[in-house]
Nucleic acid binder design. Structure first.
Lengths: 109, 109
DNA sequence: ATTGTATTCAACCAAGTGGTTGACAAAGGT
DNA sequence: ACCTTTGTCAACCACTTGGTTGAATACAAT
């Protein structure tokens, strides 16, 4: 059992699952609705949804036989938080570099 | 051959690889330096680095026998761009909901 | 009660993953 | 020249993954 961050990244590593997420960001949908555009069995899509649910990216409720799928957008924060750290550090490095270059410049005067 | 976005997400789905990225964000490092803290063979780490390189997250140069590994932080933009779309849409939905609720409120007066 | 619709479960398969060990290559240090 | 350091390549293994088909479940509708 991997940590959630690993699961989220793994879930989004599949183009079909990313597309499902994209479509769910517009509106909730049922399994068969989601499966319709793809050239794979409904069962395959059901598996994809299990992966997405396992990662926390989607949740499912019940409406008669249907299992509407809902995007849990808050999970994205987990990723952006992780990613931002390294983007920020990259910026910090550039800033440090700028400072160094400035100091070098001042020394030359 | 998967698209780059798939490769980047897949690469970051592994905790060891995320940790390598974290350490590279501080400074470049050689393969053996990177391998040192983990309880796996140098070959295993070499494989991890190949995955990271394949995704574009790192690049390698040469310094005698050493192959310094460098983080290509610009690749993060690819992910954030993808993620932001859905975070933004989520915000849009909330705004639409707010508008609807406001209108309902006005109707009740 | 029977039939239809929506979804999941189970067993299977080919391909991929993360690890191992052993051999090899490439460059430096002595 | 020889040994050491640094790293990769190759073959192997257990496990996972994304797909399949067929059977089972859970409701709705007639």
């Amino acid at each position: 059992m991997a940590d959630q961050l690993s699961k989220v990244f793994a879930a989004l590593a599949d183009p079909t699952r990313r597309d499902i997420v994209a479509r769910l960001s517009v509106a909730d949908a049922t399994v068969s609705e989601l499966a319709e555009p793809y050239d794979v069995s409904v069962q395959a899509v059901s598996k994809h949804l299990k992966v997405l649910e396992d990662s926390g990216l989607v949740s499912r409720s019940r409406d008669a036989q249907r299992r509407p799928v809902h995007l849990e957008d808050n999970v994205f924060d987990l990723m952006t938080k992780w990613i931002e750290r390294y983007q920020r550090q990259a910026e910090d490095r550039y800033q440090r570099l700028d400072t160094v270059l400035e100091e070098m410049d001042n020394d030359n005067e």
